[in-house]
Structure formats: structure tokens, C-alpha cells
């Protein structure tokens, strides 16, 4: 990956609560094109590590339903456009 693009995963410090340890992970994407004074940063939560008092580990993914729905709508629109386009061409 080029230097001006960075994709990193970061973790929070341990959060102790009722004998459990919680560590949250986030992914960041940053872009700075050399020579261009433009920067872009995108941070999103990814998952949560839960360590119980007995040492049992559990990873809970952080799902983003809004983004999934938006992607579904975008795919549906694109598919509709493709189908209608094919039907148009066939009619002609």
C-alpha cells in the first residue's frame, strides 16, 4: 500500500467493569496525497473484546446496519438500472 494511504486498527485501553475487561477496536483509514494539501480521515468501530473474570475471551463484532441497508439500496438501484437498460436494448 502506498505511504499516503494508511489503514490501521487501534485499540482502547482496558476498561474494567465488574470483574470484566473490555477492549474496543477501531479501524482508521487516512489519506494524504503528497504535494496536495488535502487530507481525509475515516474512523469506524470494529469489534469489542470481552475478557471475563474466569479468563474466558469473547469477541463481539460491531455491525453497522445503516451502512448495510444503504449498500443494499445502492446495489438494488444499480441492478434495476442494469435490468431496465437490457430490456430497452432488447426492445430496440
Amino acid at each position: 500500500m502506498p505511504d499516503f494511504i494508511r489503514l490501521e486498527t487501534h485499540s482502547t485501553r482496558q476498561i474494567k467493569h465488574q470483574g470484566r475487561n473490555l477492549v474496543a477496536f477501531a479501524q482508521s483509514f487516512s489519506l494524504q496525497i503528497p504535494g496536495l494539501p488535502i487530507g481525509l480521515v475515516w474512523n469506524r468501530p470494529v469489534s469489542l473484546l470481552v475478557v471475563d473474570s474466569d479468563g474466558q475471551e469473547q469477541i463481539l463484532p460491531i455491525k453497522d446496519p445503516t451502512r448495510l441497508i444503504m449498500l443494499g439500496l445502492a446495489c438494488g438501484t444499480l441492478l434495476t438500472w442494469l435490468i431496465t437498460r437490457i430490456l430497452f436494448v432488447r426492445r430496440q
Binding site: 482502547t12 465488574q18 473490555l22 474496543a24 481525509l40 474512523n43 469506524r44 468501530p45
Partner: peptide, 27 residues
């Protein structure tokens, strides 16, 4: 571009701990 942009400060209320998380995009 760090983890604390995506997670807020933990909020503790009685026995419950709440951590808000958000997607942040800046340009």
C-alpha cells in the same frame, strides 16, 4: 485517526456501563 474518535467516554450508571461508538469521517 485514532480509536478515541470512534468511541466515546464510558458512562457508568449503577451496575451498567455504556460506551457509545460512532463512525467519523472528516476531510
Amino acid at each position: 485517526a485514532n480509536v478515541y474518535a470512534a468511541y466515546g467516554e464510558p458512562i457508568e450508571k449503577e451496575d451498567t456501563l455504556i460506551i457509545p461508538s460512532a463512525e467519523v469521517f472528516s476531510v
